[in-house]
Design a protein around this nucleic acid. Structure first.
Lengths: 122, 122
DNA sequence: ACCAGATATCGACGTCTGTCAATACGCCGG
DNA sequence: CCGGCGTATTGACAGACGTCGATATCTGGT
């Protein structure tokens, strides 16, 4: 299933806003892959909930109930986000803590925006 | 097929970056709808090609061949983008010219970015 | 009025995706 | 070492999606 571990997000979001020059088929495919990862209500809410959670991290048990989805489904969505390079998983003991990858969403935003897109964080 | 003419893009992208506070189910659904519209290689390239085309507009005939997809398919993708509020269609004579909606992609970028998101252009 | 060309719509097809129940895996406490 | 708990994986299924060929619609010219 093309479970292509951690996409080259940097490659996707490194360069020019897409409105500046026509995307190649490859760049478009890469960018689309990343966008597909966040183009889902459940995953958007997950990103949002994790970011807003105390310590900017959360475990599956924090997310299942407020989302209203089953534990396997939440786990599945989190995997998609990790594979897309948007989240990191940190397993401490029995719990798996998820955190936003710093700058990942910003890089994505930069590609979409026609404004200059300041160099992403570190 | 929920052909919900022209989504309230402004409603989606008006407010806070999604990393600032948890999205409601409704906001997440709206945002996801718009993101789904661009989360496709063909549609990303269409946006990109239109933006880069002379006069920042293009007709279907300009796009079919470079994309390598059939005319009905291109027409379909363009419709999705128009319905999502990202493109406008302007039929002049036999040709249909498509243009980016100013600020639409920028608004989207602002919701994704954690950076302040300046008020979108005019 | 007719025809040719550009675009839109329709119907069908295979594939991908989101969801769940069931189950497996890993870690910890007793 | 065993049982409980949090998480991940599997298998199955319904619905959505991208694509095409065929066809309809509209426009401009002859």
């Amino acid at each position: 299933m093309t479970r292509s571990a951690t996409l080259p997000l940097a490659d996707v979001a490194c360069c020019v806003p897409l409105v500046r020059q026509p995307l190649t088929a490859d760049s478009a495919a890469d960018l689309a892959r990343t966008l597909k990862a966040i183009a889902d209500p459940a995953r958007l809410r997950l990103l949002s909930m994790i970011a807003a959670h105390e310590g900017a991290e959360a475990c599956v048990c924090d997310l299942t109930e407020p989302l209203g989805l089953s534990q396997p489904t939440v786990s599945h969505h989190l995997r998609v986000l990790v594979d897309a390079g948007l989240l990191t998983r940190d397993k401490r003991g029995v719990w798996a803590y998820f955190t936003l990858v710093p700058g990942a969403l910003d890089s994505l935003a930069d590609v979409l925006s026609s404004r200059g897109a300041a160099a992403a964080s570190v």
